[in-house]
Design a protein around this nucleic acid. Structure first.
Length: 659
RNA sequence: GCGCCCGUAGCUCAGUGGAUAGAGCAACUGGCUACGAACCAGUAGGUCGGAGGUUCGACUCCUUCCGGGCGCACCA
């Protein structure tokens, strides 16, 4: 609603300026003033014009003032300071439109592909993976179509590197360290399942063990590393027991990852696997394309002689005969492809530029849709997943370089538009505070204890496992629910605790902007007070409680409200502030999408909840003697609750039945 | 060496070139016979890492320096 009014005022001013001064202002700043006494919208436009018109800002503001005051929805315009134009809205009119559900639409054409999670399937997911998945899932919720917005057609995929060296490591661990055969592995997995033990947890320890084992005896390092490489090659080749073991473990661990993520409401549409990129020869096609266009060339001199390379983004032009030793190697001298090479092929596929497609098979059924996995053969019919118009890769900032390289390959191949629609949704990694590391039972060196944070490492088995964290969050919520609501049935208490625990976790991962490094600490994460998910949930629950106790329906209240003159009640700032905050919903969503920054919404959820809690405390709705005022207060609660529930849904946070 | 990110209250973080730099936590004061306090009100807490520059105006842009982190492999 705020956005609609804002757009109206913007276009009005733009046409005014064009008429009067023949000035084109493509973008116009309209900001929310720091205090309500300055109105609802502040325009510093007079400052901007002062130089171009060679007039004092205040004089310009005075000229614009009466013209702005005529805009529908605007109650008054004041000039403040050196030339701010402060707009006050017609509160009652704005509130009526808001109550009727009017809001700016968000959405557009084109298929958007969001890739997130992408955990190597050789160990349990940890807290760093949670940040990735929660960021990606939230962004998908912000963008995709739903009951509130048309949105953008969206596909969510989770890339599975099932043939990488990490998988080879876990195969070495079970075959060499544990001495299992293919049959043995099958039995082991079945046995774990019977005892309800998590395969990914078992692999977590094995992976850490085998990583140490490689380097444990100096004279055997070369031999063991060779074993690892041979294992990797056997997996890549396929059609042997080693590959079968890898497949069993990778798929088993992948299923666990999907279970873990589903606990947080995170689902996927498609799981492209590296094994298919390999077996369907994606790279061969990409290579041909790149060689044809001269993007990929064989280096003949210098340190990279014999390898096939590609120039880096922004590399300076070369003189005749000069060698670019900084070029990125895509094919090693021994003929094998590097990670970036495979990634280029995969991204050509994403944009439908490769001329090849995966086979597709059903992998998992969610309540509302199917998740597909890549295969060589595949089944028909299947949905289409490539041919994206825009892509978003949720990948940690440590991959900035390779990501830039893939984008550069697209650009160099002439796919400039695709390169521009390629967003690396990057974020800083998650580390652990020394205190939390010690709490988890790791022994730290004095040097480590002094650090601000410690980097998690799957290889070292150092980190907080995702399921453990989720268990703890829900457990902590459960304790609170038991205390507060002993009267409720156990199943309901469990459901409430789950909503709160998950809400707290998701909010915790979203409240930091993407490039803020999170030093994870249990004490912070387990807090349910202040700027947290439960705080926002609580505000929504309180609003719902009003209606439960009053025994009236929100819709009925809003209908009644539509027939009222609410201006007297809305003149009270403590009431109007809630409406104003709610009116910014689509504005903030649009902003969050434009910046690809879910933290914008998380922050806003807190502000909205805070506004409502404040209102709740100042106005005792059910005891209100004046009938008109009571209806307006009820409508305020209804709109606040509706806005909060919608906003939290985009954050993947549900509102429990009680708190 | 080159590239990217960060430095804001005791701690954790917000802050599209614009008004007196804001929250949460922690500390201290106060508020439940209420739509249940997972809440609210208040107090205290700042050379926005340092120095220059651009601008009517800089936490925000530029330069430089100082701290901290990450990335730049014929590892994946």
């Amino acid at each position: 609603m705020y956005r609609i009014l804002q757009q109206g005022i913007q276009s009005r001013i733009q046409s005014l300026l064009a008429e009067r001064y023949q000035i084109e202002l493509p973008s116009l700043v309209v900001e929310l003033p720091p205090k309500l006494e300055f109105g609802e919208m502040a325009l510093p436009v007079a400052f901007e014009l002062a130089k171009r018109l060679k007039k004092a800002p205040r004089a310009i503001a005075q000229e614009l003032q009466p013209l702005l005051a005529e805009i529908p929805g605007v109650a008054s315009v004041e000039i403040a300071g050196a030339g701010y134009l402060n707009v006050k809205l017609d509160r009652a009119a704005t509130a009526q439109r808001l109550a009727a559900g009017e809001h700016a639409t968000v959405g557009g054409e084109g298929f958007r592909l969001i890739e997130h999670t992408s955990i190597n399937p050789n160990k349990a997911a940890h807290v760093g993976h949670l940040r990735n998945a929660i960021l990606g899932d939230t962004f998908a919720r912000m963008v995709r179509p739903d009951a509130w917005k048309p949105g953008y057609a969206t596909g969510v995929q989770n890339y599975i590197d099932n043939t990488g060296v990490q998988v080879a490591d876990i195969v070495v661990a079970v075959t060499v360290l544990e001495g299992m055969t293919l049959e043995g592995v099958r039995g082991w997995i079945a046995n774990l399942a019977e005892r309800e033990q998590r395969l990914d947890y078992a692999c977590w320890d094995l992976y850490a063990r085998v990583s140490q084992w490689y380097d444990a005896e100096p004279e055997k390092v070369a031999e063991r590393k060779k074993l690892r490489l041979d294992t990797l090659h056997a997996i890549e080749a396929g059609g042997n027991d080693t590959a079968a073991i890898a497949e069993l473990i990778a798929t088993g661990v992948l299923r666990r990852h999907l279970e873990t993520m589903e606990r947080l409401g995170i689902e996927y549409d498609f799981l492209p696997r590296e094994s298919e990129i390999l077996h369907l020869h994606f790279w061969e096609h990409a290579r041909k394309l790149m060689v044809e266009k001269g993007v990929l060339y064989k280096e003949t001199a210098g340190k990279n002689a014999g390898a096939w390379v590609m120039r880096r983004a922004g590399a300076p032009a070369l003189a005749e005969g000069e060698v670019d030793e900084d070029a990125k190697i895509l094919i090693r001298s021994n003929g094998t492809v590097t990670y970036v090479g495979k990634d280029i092929a995969y991204h050509l596929w994403k944009f439908g530029l490769l001329g090849l497609d995966f086979g597709y098979a059903k992998f998992r059924e969610y309540l509302s849709h199917t998740c597909w996995v890549s295969t060589t053969e595949g089944e028909e019919p299947h949905p289409s997943f490539g041919h994206a118009d825009a892509i978003y890769n949720v990948i940690d900032s440590r991959q900035d370089d390779p990501q830039t390289q893939v984008k550069e390959a697209l650009r160099a191949l002439g796919y400039v538009e695709a390169a521009e629609k390629y967003t690396h949704l990057n974020y800083a990694f998650v580390a652990l505070t020394p205190r939390t590391a010690e709490e988890l039972g790791y022994t730290l060196s004095e040097e480590d204890k002094a650090k601000q944070y410690l980097e998690v490492s799957g290889r070292k088995g150092f980190g907080v496992k995702a399921d453990d964290l989720i268990d703890r969050m829900i457990g902590a919520a459960r304790e609170e629910v038991e205390k507060r609501h002993p009267e409720l049935e156990s199943a309901e208490r469990a459901a409430i605790a789950e909503a709160i625990g998950v809400g707290a976790l998701r909010y915790f991962m979203l409240r930091f902007t993407r490039n803020t490094l999170i030093a994870f600490d249990f004490r912070d994460a387990l807090s349910f007070e202040g700027e947290t998910g439960p705080y926002a949930q609580y505000a929504a629950v309180r609003a719902a409680n009003i209606f439960r106790k009053a025994g009236v329906e929100e819709d009925a209240v809003l209908r009644e409200f539509a027939a009222l003159d609410a201006s007297a009640v809305l003149a009270e700032d403590s009431v109007w502030e809630v409406w104003l905050a709610c009116s910014r919903l689509s504005h903030v969503l649009e902003q969050g999408i434009a910046q690809a920054e879910p933290a914008v919404l998380a922050k806003y959820a807190f502000v909205l909840a805070q506004g409502f809690n404040n209102f709740y405390h100042r106005h005792h709705v059910l005891n209100e003697p004046d009938a008109t005022k009571k209806t307006v207060l009820l409508a305020t609660a209804a709109v606040a609750r509706r806005s909060l529930v919608q906003l939290l849904a985009w954050l993947g946070i549900s509102v429990p039945s009680a708190m």
